[in-house]
Simulated assay, not measured.
Amino acid sequence: MRLKLPQLVRRSLKATSFWRDYSLILGEFKYFPWIAFGAIAFAFGAALFEGFGFGFLLTFLQSLVSPDAAPFHTGHDWFDVWILGVNESATSRLFRVSGLILISTWIRAVFNYLSQVFTELTQHKLVDSLRRRIFEQLQSLSLSYFTKAKSGELVSTLTNEIGSLRAAFGALSYIVTKGLTLIVYLFLLFTISWQLTIISVMLFSLVAAGLKNLNARVREASFGIPAASGRFTSVSMEIISGIRTVQAFATQDYERQRFYRASSDLLDVSMKAVKRWALIRPLAEGLASTVLISMIIVALTVFVANGMLQTASLLTFLFILFRLVPAIHELNGNVAVLNNFTGALDNIQQLLRTDNKPYLSQWYATLSRAATGDFL
């Protein structure tokens, strides 16, 4: 089943830089839209039940910190009376909330499992679909293309770049699923204290703005990796296929220099990219920890001291914030990883282009264009 979106939505998506950068991945979802939708839906379900668990945590902490205080009310009488047991004793309410937290945790675990299964299934179908597209593209090209293109670079695209695509999709799926969880976290933080949440969002936005330039440099450095990898594969294949000629004419030293030079070039561009993306995660951790400590100081000295926030609410807010900070660390790290594979994705897209290659016949060209059609 192929998915067709409304014309306005299609034009809006195509105009975004995210679509231009990752259309190779997103465009393949037209062949298995419901599997991709299932992965997102189950991820959203897991995030939703994690939010329920945090909501019950507020009642749980209130029962521990202030057992004699008025019980927490949601505003729905049937839920407050029959589920939370607001008319029961503090011990009974504690047991009820503990059970609700456990139920939410196990349901979230089931949704996480289903989301992981559907994500892996989407990843394997994506890789298989692109392999078939590349095969059909190569089959339809005329011999004049292969006299100019290096076989090692083509093999590198089918092996190394496809492997990079798999890793890029893993990073992209993590960004999507964790992004849904962050939305739930922000909603809960707003319900507890919108003032503290706005301060947190502003500070973390400054951190994200500071890391944006570094992510752009990682993306720029990634374009040299597939080119160097293709040259290394070409040199390796030439040496292996022509080993008899090498030994017959005693050119081992010359081939050794070619191989070492190609290997060194690949090492240099890889290390250049690694040095940039490896800096993002520890830098983000340091900045986020600074923000977190600042938030604790502000909350205690301003909001709790002036009676604007209860102790149980502050503990719940900080607990969610402590869960939010590592998620932001991982999110920034995966954005850096995704940017590191931009060059590999661009290399595959260039191979699949149909407007700059000679085809065996017009029928082959039409067939190839149909196989590489737009998602939108």
Rank of each mutant, 00 (worst) to 15 (best):
G55N: 03
A109L: 13
F44P: 05
S222C: 06
I320K: 02
S17I: 05
A370E: 06
Q116F: 13
F187Q: 13
R131I: 00
L267G: 14
F29R: 14
A43I: 02
T372D: 04
I83S: 04
E50P: 00
D355V: 04
K125R: 15
A90D: 07
F118E: 08
G163R: 09
S66P: 11
A248S: 05
S289T: 11
S98R: 08
N340W: 08
V298R: 05
W82S: 14
F303S: 12
R131A: 01
R96M: 14
I134K: 10
A278Q: 05
T191C: 03
L141V: 12
G152A: 02
F60D: 00
S193Y: 13
E153L: 05
K14R: 05
A227S: 10
P67V: 09
N213A: 05
W277I: 03
I296H: 06
F52N: 05
A305S: 15
P6D: 12
R281E: 13
L206N: 01
L154D: 01
A171Y: 15
G75S: 02
L292H: 04
R20M: 07
I293V: 06
S193G: 14
I348Q: 06
T366H: 09
K150I: 02
M308G: 03
I103M: 03
S17W: 06
R96H: 14
E50D: 15
S23W: 07
P358M: 08
R132I: 14
Q350F: 11
L180R: 15
V97L: 03
A227E: 11
I243E: 13
L206M: 03
L300K: 07
S129C: 04
L331Y: 13
I243N: 13
I103W: 01
R261M: 11
T311Q: 05
R20A: 11
I83P: 01
R369H: 02
T59A: 15
A370T: 04
N356K: 12
T366I: 06
G38W: 08
G55C: 03
S98V: 10
G333Q: 12
I134H: 09
F79N: 12
L188W: 07
I35D: 14
W363V: 14
V9Y: 09
A15N: 00
V235P: 00
F232C: 05
